[in-house]
Nucleic acid binder design. Structure first.
Lengths: 147, 147
DNA sequence: CATATGAAGTCTCATAATGAGACCACTTGC
DNA sequence: GCAAGTGGTCTCATTATGAGACTTCATATG
């Protein structure tokens, strides 16, 4: 491979976002972080990722401000990886991927996890695009401006 | 590299979604498709992707039911790639990525494209997670069930 | 109609990224 | 103190990627 292309300067927020979290593992690491995973070995065991890859990815995500390291919350001398505010901003990306997966990649009755409201255990509602004033919008109602 | 890991059977819709569109180029191809790109050369020129990669990715996305091939809409003998309904379902994933990029990856005043309502040219509203009954939810109000 | 140009790929090659696992230093548990 | 656990680093074989030459058929031009 020649050096992997960077998309940072494309003027498109989608491209720039993918430049940060668009590789194979980053979003899975972030998903696990949302589910409460914090320690190196937890990520490694949960994802089945090679340790070298995980170390590289965690370093990258910390460097990009998506994760931060913190002293272990259980009082041990180890460190933990926690989402920054920027990282927590990716929640809707994970939710959108989840809802698409649920809608198009599972047969009815197939076992899968669900995102539920913690207080009631009721599945959350579907994401919906709305205008600035709150009116529901479809894809065909929108366009992307030239940058 | 050993053979790239597949996540299809993880029981997590996020993992399964990433198994389909989680690589470096697929979401960019899909983004361009949403912006009206349909022809091989348009994708290639717009993304700066190697032709071999593009051919592989397009074949893969067609095979996975995200894109479909159709006769060219301009009457020529060439074919086009168009989003299927399943592919159009990814719109909110693209929007979520875009909004995250806009919020955390650009300095104020930096040039970038925007997603606007076509009729009024007003930027669309922010995505928001809501409960099944429409009440706004934060990440901390939710949890993921074991599958 | 003959030729040139364009579209949509395929093929090959050098190089970068990945996965597996050995190895290492420091902590903890017992 | 010693074994096990944690959090990595290093190396190696293999795969994926990027660049670009080459091919085939379609369309444009004169």
């Amino acid at each position: 491979m020649a050096k992997r292309v960077s998309l940072w300067n494309a003027g498109c927020p989608v491209a720039r976002a993918l430049d940060v979290i668009g590789d194979w593992w980053s979003l899975l690491i972030i998903r696990d972080a949302f589910d409460g995973v914090r320690r190196f070995n937890e990520f490694q065991a949960g994802l089945g990722i090679a340790k070298g890859m995980l170390a590289t990815r965690l370093r990258g995500l910390v460097g990009k401000g998506v994760l931060d390291t913190a002293p272990a919350s259980d009082g041990s001398a180890y460190r933990e990886y926690v989402l920054t505010e920027k990282g927590r901003g990716l929640f809707l990306v994970i939710v959108a991927l989840r809802q698409w997966g649920e809608d198009y990649l599972y047969r009815p009755g197939e076992r899968r996890s669900s995102l539920v409201e913690a207080r009631t255990d009721v599945p959350v509602g579907k994401l919906k695009l709305r205008s600035a004033k709150g009116r529901p919008l479809e894809w065909s109602d929108t366009r992307v401006t030239r940058c």
